[in-house]
Design a protein around this nucleic acid. Structure first.
Lengths: 212, 212
DNA sequence: GCCAATGCTTGACAGTCGTCAAGTTTTTCT
DNA sequence: AGAAAAACTTGACGACTGTCAAGCATTGGC
């Protein structure tokens, strides 16, 4: 085969692969929404297919099995979710501003992406039982940790203080607040959510000691 | 019916009720262990029955349906799990001792009751999707919060300081550490677990400011 | 020792699940 | 245009689910 023919073949193959991947992603997104709505325990392939424009059989054309499909959906979650606060970090010029924007974004996404977040926690927990999710979950979790660390270390920098705990401690604390807020938000308990919002600035300041 | 006969009838009824409740509890405990092993998503009634000495049909003799059974199992978890640290609080005479015993108990139960704890988190998450678990979950969560608060406020008392955050903040922080430790423990990552253990005293001190 | 009530087992039901093979439609290339 | 390949649908399979009715076993009061 000539080089020209080879490169043409490559282009064809490439296009096929791209198309294949595009549809895979499309179906993974449909899966993500179904999982967010029903939770892992009650999500079936037929239900996923109904949330897409295809029939249930197509899922086995693009994915080896259910695990493959859900794993791909989890990876899609990461794309959606892991850069939420970067804009706030980039824009902020004072520590108060950054803290305020962080709290705002925090409770915005709590409200708007509640079902997506509950899915994340569902899958993270699923990884406590099912080993095959663990690698992806740990990776996403570490990305979330980095995201939080970027915000808090920048906050410390702007306020002239230093962070009082390790990245791990900072992350689990703020993630714990988020988890709790999510639970009460979904339970319709607006009072508790408002309390958590009011307390969040204090929590942040707890994690950052003034001066050095 | 005479009073005597009435009271006799009562005794009989009482005994029947006690027996009924005893078996209900027994089956709820078997359910708890099955759930801890398999997780909510993969636990079936037949599997539960196999972990008891009875057949699967008996579950509908003692419980209205699967939800009723699992709800009862969740309540059993509370009985098992919510007084873990009270002994440490009662015995401690110095803040260092209390902190040390807390850390010890924390990682002991992480190791020994890992499957039970992952079940708790599984069910708490399930309540994000299934409303019927919410009331029980919120109740247990508040009991856990109180348990943690008893330890930390006593620690502040012994050390002559004061707690830096609300009960809610203190709880979500330590629960966050526990969740993370559980994930890495089940993933077999002893290094990370050891790091979390080494950091835990600092996290506690972060939550309690010295002097008043 | 008999009878009734309770406790428990067995087997079947209607439904859902993941999977896959066979067939149909659509796209792509020559 | 026609053939080949890719994309997608349909229907079926065996396995598994929660539920429950019918029947067997065991207990307790007389």
């Amino acid at each position: 085969m000539t080089d020209v023919a080879q490169s043409k073949q490559d282009r064809i193959t490439r296009r096929q692969v791209d198309k294949f991947d595009a549809r895979r992603t499309e179906l993974a997104v449909a899966t993500l929404h179904t999982l967010a709505e029903l939770g892992y325990a009650r999500t079936s392939l037929r239900e996923i297919a109904q949330n897409s424009e295809f029939s249930h059989g197509v899922l086995h054309y693009y994915f080896a099995d259910k695990r493959d499909l859900i794993t791909e959906a989890v990876r899609q979650y990461e794309v959606v979710c892991v850069t939420k606060y970067d804009e706030a970090v980039a824009n902020a010029t004072t520590s108060e501003q950054l803290r305020g924007e962080f709290v705002g974004t925090f409770f915005d996404t709590l409200d708007q992406d509640a079902t997506l977040h509950r899915l994340w926690y569902d899958l993270r927990n699923q990884s406590l039982f099912d080993e095959s999710f663990r690698a992806d979950v740990l990776e996403i979790d570490s990305h979330r940790e980095s995201m939080v660390w970027r915000v808090i270390s920048r906050y410390a920098e702007l306020s002239g203080g230093s962070v009082a705990g390790s990245p791990s401690t900072v992350y689990v604390t703020l993630d714990g607040v988020f988890q709790r807020a999510l639970l009460h938000h979904l339970a319709g308990d607006v009072v508790t959510v408002a309390q958590l919002r009011a307390e969040l600035p204090d929590v942040i300041d707890l994690l950052v000691t003034p001066q050095r």
